[in-house]
């Protein structure tokens, strides 16, 4: 029996945008279909994004604490947005 898959939108912002395929850089996002067991590192691995560069991670706008990132799985339709260290004001 095939492993269940889910659709996730991965958004890579600021200096992480360069890891996206050329065609996706202007929108900063890419639609993925991944195994339902995927965690954050599984989403970014195909794009060679260094996990250490992932400072701020939001899932549907909600902060994903660093401690939960190695184990948290996603739901179908989730939007996962990732930034390097950023601030403003």
């Amino acid at each position: 029996m095939a492993e269940a898959s889910i659709r996730v939108t991965l958004k890579l912002y600021a200096s992480l945008g360069k890891y996206l395929p050329e065609a996706n850089r202007r929108s900063n996002q890419i639609a993925l279909e991944v195994p339902a067991t995927s965690v954050m590192t599984d989403l970014i691995a195909p794009f060679a994004v260094p996990p250490a560069a992932c400072f701020l991670v939001l899932v549907n706008g909600v902060f994903l604490p660093p401690g939960q990132r190695p184990t948290a799985v996603f739901a179908d339709g989730d939007v996962v947005a990732i930034w390097p260290p950023v601030a403003g004001g």
């Binding site: 912002y13 600021a14 939001l58 930034w83 950023v86 403003g88």
Partner: peptide, 9 residues
């Protein structure tokens, strides 16, 4: 990126 990086955040 300046403070403008916050727009998407």
């Amino acid at each position: 990126f300046g403070t403008q990086v916050l727009m998407n955040v």
